[in-house]
Design a protein around this nucleic acid. Structure first.
Lengths: 143, 143
DNA sequence: CGCAATCTCTAGTAGAATAGTAGAGAATCG
DNA sequence: CGATTCTCTACTATTCTACTAGAGATTGCG
């Protein structure tokens, strides 16, 4: 019942790209710096996200990574599953469990409850909430 | 985003004790056999659950483990947290994250969604569902 | 009491996963 | 060309997971 650091990094990286909004590529080094992620580790993560079809990239002087589709079409669940693998606690260790075990049903409930959050939260949502929070902070700061 | 095998074993063990209903202690060996859990591993798990106040035990000839409180007052969440530790993906790696990060709020939502299932499901519920399932099976079997 | 059954406590361990690091290679742009 | 940046392969220290081994402490019974 843990989210890996790698998964968390991946979310932050995609959030960073979503926040820019611009279609220009962002360099790994900049993402790493602004989100405080070890750069070499981030390289692996971004490659994995590209391979999943969520990011695109360009090499060379003005290269970098960018979203492969709009931020409102990428969910938190997409990214977590791409990085940490599927979340299915149910069909794991017990091959020969009795057919009337009450646990698979419960795991289904858990999965659905979780899905309601992570598969419905897009990065556009996250950016919007972030903007709202920031504007509040600026307001109170001004008073 | 995984449940450990140890956690799953713990759930099955407590379910086994709840199913009996009887206040007589059940031997480790029997729980291990009927739920197909390595006995020595189960010993550690049961000790941990006792230490958490969920189980009681008695040594000697007719010894064994038993529920320390009624099955409708032990939840799946209780057991999972006792074995696998608390589920809080939020306050983990980023000490110096910006105050306007949108992630802590999202992790709160996740935690609440999860809690709605695991902290509301008691072992009495599980036993009841199991009985229902079993009676259905018997019925169709009889037709 | 003596003894068998059972829980309890300490220690160890093989293998996998996590969270990285290092460094050379390939593409892109001016 | 050559500087910049992504890309690919390989390596590694540390921790975690899922166990196992064996001696010790309690309890109930005859």
């Amino acid at each position: 019942m843990e989210i890996s650091v790698k998964g968390e990094y991946a979310l932050r990286a995609v959030f960073e790209l979503s926040r820019q909004g611009a279609p220009e590529p962002v360099k790994i080094a900049r993402i790493a710096e602004s989100q405080r992620i070890p750069q070499k580790f981030l390289e692996m993560i971004l490659a994995q996200l590209k391979q999943g079809g969520y990011l695109g990239s360009r090499r060379g002087a003005d290269g970098g990574y960018f979203l492969a589709r709009p931020a409102d079409q990428i969910t938190v669940g997409d990214i977590l599953r791409q990085i940490d693998g599927p979340f299915q606690p149910n069909k794991r260790p017990f091959e020969n469990e009795p057919a009337d075990s009450p646990f698979p049903e419960m795991w289904d409930r858990v999965e659905r409850a979780l899905s309601c959050v992570i598969d419905r939260t897009t990065f556009a949502d996250l950016v919007e909430r972030w903007k709202q929070k920031r504007s509040k902070r600026v307001l109170t700061w001004q008073i």
